[in-house]
Design a protein around this nucleic acid. Structure first.
Length: 207
DNA sequence: ACGCTGATGAAG
DNA sequence: TTCATCAGCGTT
């Protein structure tokens, strides 16, 4: 597989809101290969999305929306193409993209990126040197991109946090599994990742 | 395998 | 107000 080069990426080629306003599992698959960009102090940080998970709505027992609307999950009920960010385990943030038409509380968890932009600054924010450790997990990538709850409900077609077109990923390159870190609804294989990509989470660190 | 850490939401 | 739980990470 040809590796996506930073100079090929057009920061003005953002995914439209209509992209997110579709069935969540489709959005989760189609996000693989797209490029997430965070702009902080006029510097761009980010990389190619290599791992996602779909959370489908009130009928999905693993979703934050499984028990209806609360102060935390209200962004999931809003318009698609916005960021739903929550604080977890006392120290980490997780980034989701809201999907489906307004009123349907679904989202895609962004689980891992292949770093492309601002690697030096991401190493500083994460306090690790290993590029493989920078964004290979939902908590890690939020730390690397300086993403926290102040960006909750942020419009993904805006300037602070946005997604642009990147690599074309063929269906053959996409693997599926059960979603990680949950104890319910494990029969649903709604985690998607790029086969053999070293930046996917949950892998032993190799030299 | 476990401790870190604090918001969240359900129960009382 | 208390309490168990938690879409994770790093170290053991």
């Amino acid at each position: 597989m040809k590796k996506l080069a930073p100079e090929e990426i057009d920061f003005s080629d953002k995914l439209a809101t209509e992209f997110y306003s579709r069935p969540t599992r489709l959005v989760a698959r189609d996000l693989l290969g797209k490029v997430l960009i965070r702009c902080v102090n006029n510097e761009f940080l980010g990389g190619m999305i290599v791992e996602t998970e779909a959370y489908l709505g009130e009928a999905d027992a693993a979703s934050h929306a499984a028990r209806g609307i609360t102060p935390r999950n209200r962004v999931m009920y809003g318009p698609p193409g916005t960021a739903y960010i929550y604080f977890i385990y006392g120290m980490y943030n997780c980034l989701n993209f809201v999907t489906e038409p307004e009123g349907h509380p679904a989202a895609v968890l962004i689980r891992a990126l292949e770093p492309l932009f601002g690697i030096q600054m991401m190493q500083k924010l994460r306090a690790v040197a290993s590029v493989r450790q920078l964004t290979s997990g939902p908590g890690k990538l939020c730390q690397a991109l300086a993403i926290n709850r102040t960006l909750n409900n942020e419009d993904l077609t805006g300037e602070n946090l946005f997604v642009v077109h990147g690599a074309k990923i063929s269906p053959k390159q996409i693997e599926k599994s059960a979603r990680l870190g949950i104890k319910v609804a494990t029969e649903f294989h709604w985690r998607y990742y790029i086969k053999d990509n070293p930046h996917v989470s949950g892998k032993p660190v190799k030299k």
